[in-house]
Design a protein around this nucleic acid. Sequence first.
DNA 1: ACAATAACTAACAAAATTGTTAGGCTTTAA
DNA 2: TTAAAGCCTAACAATTTTGTTAGTTATTGT
Lengths: 133, 133
Amino acid sequence: MLGFKLSVMRKKESTNFENEQFLFQVCELNSAIAMISGRWKSQIVYSISKGNDRFHLIQQELPNISETVLARQLKELETHAILVKQKIPNTIPLGVQYVLTNKGLDLVPILEHLCDWGKLYADGKEISTCSIS
Amino acid sequence: MLGFKLSVMRKKESTNFENEQFLFQVCELNSAIAMISGRWKSQIVYSISKGNDRFHLIQQELPNISETVLARQLKELETHAILVKQKIPNTIPLGVQYVLTNKGLDLVPILEHLCDWGKLYADGKEISTCSIS
DNA sequence: ACAATAACTAACAAAATTGTTAGGCTTTAA
DNA sequence: TTAAAGCCTAACAATTTTGTTAGTTATTGT
């Protein structure tokens, strides 16, 4: 029997989908943000960049994530070519290692900028405007 | 009669909420991404940074956004102190202008980096890994 | 008086994301 | 042979995000 669904398919005729496509075509900024904005996702990228390249190592860093959810987010990051899965030779049972692509590696400093930005204003730096009014 | 709800309140006892809070406390990166990751949001910030500082000017740039949704996203950006709403003196009827705070202004170059990153890999730069394997 | 513009809001519905349950496979250790 | 570690999947339920409908207020032009 054909046509069963893997996870839940996205609806292609919805306004939601059309608006997303519209934004993707306005500027790559929007596709970039879509790629990194899922729950756990950028933290996973950051974690891998620090050397936690195995499934169970990421789980140790993020104990609240479930296996299913971690596997799903890793697959999405793989779909966007931010990372690749590699079999580790000479491991028994055959292990899997997650490796950032150069696309993923280029993302890391941007995430660090975002992190700094978040810290700067979280630490209470006063917020002002420079408007003329 | 008290206790009616403005928009729909977030559920505070859910795993979803707890996981979000956990990530916020792991690294400000996650709160930073939460602030910019809503549909239309970073495009609105970018649009204001280019001088489209009025409600109807943003609507012109993003014709597919509805008034309700635009107002909602602007309010969320205001909640995160990325922008402020200002009455424009000597306009009739009294106009409203959206002005980026310094927090919002500091965000703009980061969004530009993200945009460049998106463009670089969208334009077909080959993706590779540097793993030893 | 009436329509139009600008800038909103509440309540609701549709769709998407996130989390849960219950499995799967392969190999080693007990 | 049973259990555990490591990695993964499908189906479903809970929650959140996004979009829609139908209003509001205030002012100007006709």
